[in-house]
């Protein structure tokens, strides 16, 4: 009944082995749950980063904001950055000319209107009126720019703050990957041990140990967390039956037969026709 793999168990009472088995299974379950949670957190972080860098338009919904303070902060900073960006764009659309160009043109207009020149170089009355009007319009525009002087600085600050937060989330993300690897490392020997204990218990008459929980595949966990998979990963899942629970899709409609064509390419003139020459029979 016992073999060389179960020598250490043979000396223990059955109840003790059963208890060890139960605790091992509990640990495996706990690690699986933790892995699932880690994947979901990773996905949430990835979505927040995508929103922060404008790859998606809507932020993800955060169920427990108290647990993800930095993600909430990133979303708020992105909203603030967008608000400032819109303000700047509105100002640009409203005034249409950059401030430095306005100042330059004002100086030039002022000089042409006030500095004495030769009669041939002096502006005409119509041009003077135009310049007078434009000078004061530009003056008003520069004042508007000056009134929003803080906008650019605020925008820069908001951009910097958002980038810092995104960097921090990215750093955390790397830690998550390490934690996921550690989780896998922990889970593997525990599953092996659980299998060994179960095999031993099955060999004792009158015992019916519960099966070791099925190992949830990495891909399945990632899918459950809402992550995407690459084509290669999908192919691997199909090959190993990972998509068996999916509903069967209807068979695709028959593809209409192609017109049969000769294997050889027929060389024909595109325009006109070849006329029979002297050498033709």
């Amino acid at each position: 009944m016992s073999n060389r793999f179960h020598k250490d168990l043979a000396v223990l009472p059955r109840e003790a082995v059963e208890a060890t088995y139960a605790s091992t299974i509990a640990q495996v379950n706990r690690l699986d749950e933790e892995r699932q949670r880690l994947y979901m957190d990773k996905k949430l972080r990835s979505e927040v980063i995508k929103f922060a860098v404008n790859k998606i338009q809507q932020p993800p919904l955060i169920d427990h904001p108290e647990l993800h303070a930095n993600l909430v902060q990133a979303i708020n900073e992105k909203h603030e950055f967008d608000r400032l960006l819109n303000g700047r764009d509105e100002l640009t659309a409203r005034l249409a000319v950059p401030r430095h160009r306005l100042v330059q043109a004002m100086g030039s207009f002022y000089e042409r209107l006030t500095v004495s020149t030769k009669a041939s170089e002096a502006p005409h009355l119509a041009a003077e009126m135009e310049m007078f009007s434009k000078f004061f319009e530009m003056q008003a525009m520069v004042r508007v720019y000056d009134g929003h002087q803080g906008l650019h600085a605020e925008l820069d600050d908001a951009r910097r703050a958002l980038l810092e937060t995104v960097k921090a989330i990215n750093r955390e993300d790397r830690k998550f990957t390490q934690r996921l690897n550690a989780n896998n490392e922990q889970s593997r020997p525990l599953r092996r041990e659980a299998g060994r204990l179960r095999a031993y218990l099955k060999g004792i008459p009158g015992t019916n140990p519960a099966p070791v929980p099925e190992q949830v595949e990495e891909f399945t966990l990632r899918l459950a967390a809402g992550n995407s998979l690459s084509i290669e990963e999908f192919a691997a899942m199909l090959e190993h039956g990972g998509l068996t629970k999916f509903e069967e899709t209807e068979a695709p409609a028959a593809i209409p037969k192609k017109r049969s064509t000769t294997a050889m390419r027929r060389a024909e003139p595109r325009r006109g026709r070849r006329r029979p020459g002297k050498r033709d029979p």
């Binding site: 659309a93 005034l95 249409a96 000319v97 009126m129 009007s133 004061f136 008003a140 004042r143 508007v144």
Partner: peptide
Amino acid sequence: DWGHLLEDARRVEEGGKSSYA
């Protein structure tokens, strides 16, 4: 009597668009 020459400036001051825009 320069009021008519400052129409664009007034519009900008009141939050409107510049003549360039």
